[in-house]
């Protein structure tokens, strides 16, 4: 607690009024920094302008066309936006995606953080547990997962066999419109390996001295968690939250493999990316798909901006 307090004061006092000489020195440093930044960012800049920007702008242009993959795109103004307004499937797809994101991202983060915290405490067999917990993430979204998911959550799957022991007849989880999305949320939470590993790396980066100092002050573990671990881990929590949101909004593969690409039953798992994929590649309406993609970008962008704004209040940077 006190260690953090000290650092905070240090940071605040560092920003006093500057003398002209200090200003001059700062300007010099700025120039030096700018030159260095150009060098350090050189690969990224080349990538941005050489590889990334072209396709991004091309997709923006196509969003205002009737591009069908095989013929010249024709500029159609806001026709695609107009179409969105009356698009029933788009509404269903947005609802499914938002539910998925809002439910699965927080759960996955909490599970990942709790397990990382548990594993960080030098428990016996740490390496074994860490590997085992990471395994589902290794499997990726393979064909095996699709098969397996039906065997587990199907009408005659393992879950229902288990429920049957208690005399409960469960539904065909993957096949009912009411529960199919739920199984995908379980699937997502189950692959918590990636955020967990990132949390672990973050926990490992917290200097032990802080804990020692806190222990001297008589703080118990709970207090240490709240006043040292969480604040110092907050940049990493923030990272996992932001990237979790960006990634989950774009979820595609899991729904694609589990529903055989349909987003069914009855569009209940029609993720946004899956819908625009169907429009673009199965329906040859790539212009509309591009417009959808930019709508998605606006949504994710808004969520991310909100996150960055809120981060001022809870993310602690040690610099």
């Amino acid at each position: 607690m006190s260690a953090i307090g000290e650092l905070r004061t240090l940071r605040r006092t560092g920003r006093g009024r500057l003398s002209p000489a200090q200003k001059e020195a700062e300007a010099k440093e700025r120039r030096r920094d700018s030159r260095a930044a150009l060098v350090f960012l050189a690969p990224w800049l080349v990538g941005l302008f050489g590889i990334t920007v072209g396709p991004v702008l091309a997709s923006l242009y196509l969003a205002f066309t009737d591009y069908n993959l095989l013929q010249d795109p024709n500029f159609v103004g806001l026709e695609n936006v107009q179409r969105m307004l009356g698009d029933e499937r788009l509404g269903r797809s947005l609802a499914a995606t938002l539910t998925y994101v809002v439910v699965s991202v927080p759960i996955q983060l909490v599970v990942a953080l709790a397990l990382a915290y548990l594993l960080d405490r030098g428990i016996r067999g740490l390496a074994f547990y860490r590997s085992v917990l990471y395994l589902p993430s290794l499997l990726g979204a393979s064909v095996a997962i699709a098969v397996l998911w039906r065997l587990v959550f199907g009408g005659e799957g393992l879950v229902n066999a288990f429920l049957g022991l208690f005399g409960i007849t469960g539904p065909a989880w993957v096949a009912e419109p009411e529960t199919a999305l739920g199984t995908l949320i379980v699937l997502h939470v189950w692959t918590f390996g990636a955020p967990m590993v990132i949390f672990l790396a973050g926990l490992r980066q917290i200097p032990r001295q802080y804990y020692d100092a806190a222990a001297t002050d008589g703080a118990n573990r709970w207090q240490q968690l709240r006043s040292i671990t969480l604040p110092l881990l907050s940049p990493i929590i923030f990272f996992n939250l932001v990237l979790g949101l960006i990634g989950t909004f774009q979820s595609f593969t899991q729904a694609y493999i589990v529903s055989n690409g349909s987003g069914g039953p009855t569009d209940s798992t029609l993720f946004f990316s899956l819908y625009l994929y169907q429009e673009g590649f199965a329906g040859f309406r790539m212009g509309y798909a591009s417009a959808l993609a930019w709508l998605l970008l606006l949504i994710i962008g808004a969520f991310t901006a909100l996150n960055f704004w809120a981060s001022k209040y809870w993310v602690f940077y040690d610099d």
Binding site: G155, A172, V174, A175, E176, S262, G264
Partner: peptide
């Protein structure tokens, strides 16, 4: 539900 599970398998 059973048929929906079968679809596209």
């Amino acid at each position: 539900a059973h048929l929906s599970e079968q679809q596209g398998l």
